[in-house]
């Protein structure tokens, strides 16, 4: 049975304590819910000498209403809390939905939103400890003629073809969320579009978080509160599984016409993918069959499929179309 390596466990109760521990232990690993981290340890692919459990820090918990009508969600808030929260359901139902479709109930009960957005990719080659680009090696095992790459990327490939595994990330990006990151004495406010980074920027990580950084919380601005929203995830199994494709949409309607829209697709590239072509196409239009057809045509434009993931193109087109159709 997979027993974890030995490590020192720290359980700080304040952010400054956590920072001090992270300063003293350069190789420390932060765990939130620990659902992803413990897997890394059990497979022995990652063996950090020190582990910092930040779930005991009170300030990182909770959901609060913000002045602009939006919400602030603490990074250590569990996915179940988000999925069941009355305010989230009222203002941002698609965020609640995206939290509800993650993994399984027992995982959602302890997994946090911070951990969900900061988790590493699921590329099985990388996870199995292959020395690929992402693991500081010099090849990609998922992009060879015989590689199994059903789950991998359609867009923005730069050596690495891994995709974002997070279900909440597309929803947060569609809602234009801002991530609060503690770096040293400064608190950075990072828009979702900059928080998630692709391999062209840094091939070894999925977010802008650096060693020693702590994600404090996520601000979801009031802009899309109460708007028309849509979220759908497609996975092979309805529980546990990671997405093969997902869509998150928020739209402001003016009668029957779409006044403003934000639509983001998950699991097709290393970061959530904003579908700008679809946005500009449908802006100011009313939804009818013709528009749905056009949306289908532009949604996956520019996709460069690998050997086994062509199916993601029609999947993506249909997801975008269904999101737009929900506005009819």
């Amino acid at each position: 049975m997979d027993v974890m390596h030995q490590f020192e466990l720290y359980q700080p109760s304040s952010i400054s304590d956590a920072q001090a521990i992270l300063r003293d232990n350069r190789d420390a690993w932060i765990i939130a819910g620990g659902k992803d981290s413990l897997d890394w340890f059990k497979t022995r692919v990652m063996q950090p000498p020190a582990v910092v459990d930040i779930s005991g820090i009170e300030e990182l918990h909770g959901i609060r209403e913000a002045d602009d009508g939006g919400l602030w969600i603490g990074a250590m808030t569990t996915l179940t809390e988000i999925a069941e929260d009355a305010m989230v359901n009222e203002k941002f139902p698609m965020l609640a939905k995206s939290a509800l479709v993650v993994a399984s109930p027992q995982i959602r009960n302890i997994a946090t939103i911070g951990g969900n957005v900061a988790q590493d990719t699921r590329c099985s080659y990388y996870r199995d400890g292959f020395p690929c680009y992402r693991a500081h090696g010099n090849t990609c095992y998922a992009n060879t003629p015989t590689a199994m790459n059903r789950e991998h990327a359609l867009f923005e490939v730069s050596r690495c073809v891994a995709i974002t595994p997070s279900d909440t990330a597309p929803a947060l990006q569609a809602l234009e969320a801002v991530f609060e990151v503690q770096r040293g004495n400064r608190t950075l406010e990072v828009p979702a579009a900059d928080f998630f980074i692709g391999p062209a920027i840094d091939i070894t990580r999925m977010t802008m978080l650096e060693r020693g950084d702590i994600l404090l919380g996520i601000k979801v601005p009031g802009k899309w509160a109460g708007s028309r929203q849509y979220y759908e995830k497609v996975a092979e199994r309805q529980s546990w599984d990671f997405a093969l494709g997902s869509i998150a949409m928020a739209a402001q309607m003016d009668g029957n016409t779409i006044a403003d829209i934000s639509i983001v697709c998950g699991a097709v590239q290393c970061t959530p993918r904003r579908l700008r072509d679809v946005e500009s196409l449908v802006q100011g239009e009313t939804v009818d069959e013709e528009l749905e057809e056009l949306v289908k045509r532009v949604a996956a434009r520019g996709a460069q499929p690998l050997n086994y993931n062509h199916f993601k193109i029609p999947l993506m087109e249909n997801l975008a179309m269904r999101a737009i159709r929900s506005l009819a």
């Binding site: 359980q11 620990g34 459990d53 027992q106 009960n109 302890i110």
Partner: peptide, 13 residues
Amino acid sequence: GTTIYSCSTLTHR
């Protein structure tokens, strides 16, 4: 009262 997977939860947690 909430269910968790005990195999993947540190006891200290």
